[in-house]
C-alpha cells in the first residue's frame, strides 16, 4: 500500500500524502478512532472475505467521499444525514450487485454484511468530519486512506484467524493436510477451531490494539 504514496505528482503534496498515510497507522479508524468495528469482526474468519470487504469499503468510501464533497454546498444541513445515507446506500447496492454477479459464493458468505457497509460508522464519520468541509480530491484521498486503514486491520485479523483456525490462507492449506497428517500436522500440531468462532475475533482485535499501543505510547488511554 505504501507504493502508491511514492508517485511524484504535484497532486500528492506532503499534506495530501498525510491524508492517506495517517489513517494507516497512528490515526487508524478501527484501532484508534473506534469506528467500523461491526464488520471488521464479523467477516474476518477467512482472508478472502476480508480482502473483498476491504476493497468494497475502499470503493464505497472513496466514491462516497467525492460525491458528498461535490454536493456539500447543495445539502441543507438539517437533512444531510438522510442525503448521506442515500449516497452510501446507492453505492452499496452497486457493490452488492457486482459481488452477486462475479463472486456469488463469497457474496453469500458475506450475507447481510455487505448491506451493513451502509451503517459502517467509518463512512458516516468521514462524510461528517471531512467530506462536508473539503474539496473532492482531498476527500478522495482521505476516503481511500481511511478505508485502507480499515482494510489493513481487517486483513491482519483475517490472516491470523484463518491461519490459526483452519491452517489455510485464501483457502489454500499452508501447514499440510490435517486429515492425512502431512506437513506440520505430522508433528502433532492441531488447528485451533476456536479461532473461527466469534469471540476470538474480538480478542484478536484487542491484542492488535494492545500491540499498536505498545509501539506508540501516545495512544495509551488513561482509562
Amino acid at each position: 500500500m505504501a507504493n502508491t504514496n511514492q508517485e511524484k505528482e504535484p497532486l500528492f503534496s506532503k499534506k495530501n500524502l498525510g491524508l492517506v498515510k495517517d489513517p494507516l497507522t497512528d490515526n487508524n479508524p478501527v484501532t484508534v478512532q473506534v469506528l467500523g468495528i461491526c464488520s471488521a469482526l464479523a467477516i474476518t474468519a477467512e482472508l478472502k472475505a476480508s480482502v473483498i470487504m476491504a476493497l468494497s469499503v475502499v470503493f464505497v468510501l472513496g466514491a462516497g467521499n467525492v460525491l458528498v464533497s461535490l454536493l456539500r454546498n447543495a445539502i441543507p444541513s438539517s437533512i444531510r444525514i438522510i442525503v448521506q445515507l442515500v449516497v452510501v446506500a446507492a453505492l452499496v447496492i452497486i457493490v452488492d450487485l457486482t459481488l452477486k454477479a462475479y463472486v456469488p459464493d463469497l457474496a453469500k458468505k458475506l450475507s447481510v454484511f455487505v448491506g451493513l457497509i451502509i451503517t459502517n460508522c467509518i463512512i458516516m464519520g468521514r462524510f461528517e468530519a471531512f467530506a462536508l468541509g473539503n474539496g473532492p480530491w482531498k476527500s478522495f484521498l482521505d476516503g481511500v486512506g481511511n478505508a485502507a486503514g480499515y482494510g489493513l486491520i481487517l486483513i491482519i485479523v483475517g490472516f491470523f484467524r484463518e491461519l490459526l483456525g483452519s491452517g489455510k490462507l485464501f483457502g489454500f492449506p499452508v501447514f499440510g493436510d490435517p486429515v492425512a497428517k502431512t506437513g506440520l500436522y505430522a508433528t502433532g500440531y492441531e488447528n485451533n477451531g476456536f479461532m473461527l468462532l466469534a469471540p476470538m475475533a474480538l480478542i484478536t482485535l484487542g491484542l492488535i490494539i494492545g500491540f499498536q499501543r505498545s509501539r506508540n505510547k501516545n495512544l495509551i488511554e488513561t482509562h
Binding site: L197, A198, P199, L202, G206, G210, S214, E221, H223
Partner: peptide, 21 residues
C-alpha cells in the same frame, strides 16, 4: 497500560461472548 480502555474492552467483550456461547 497498553490494554487500558479500548483493548481491554475488546478482550472483555470476547470473554463475555464465550460466556454467551
Amino acid at each position: 497500560p497498553v490494554f487500558r480502555g479500548l483493548g481491554m474492552t475488546f478482550i472483555l467483550t470476547g470473554l463475555m461472548a464465550i460466556g454467551f456461547m
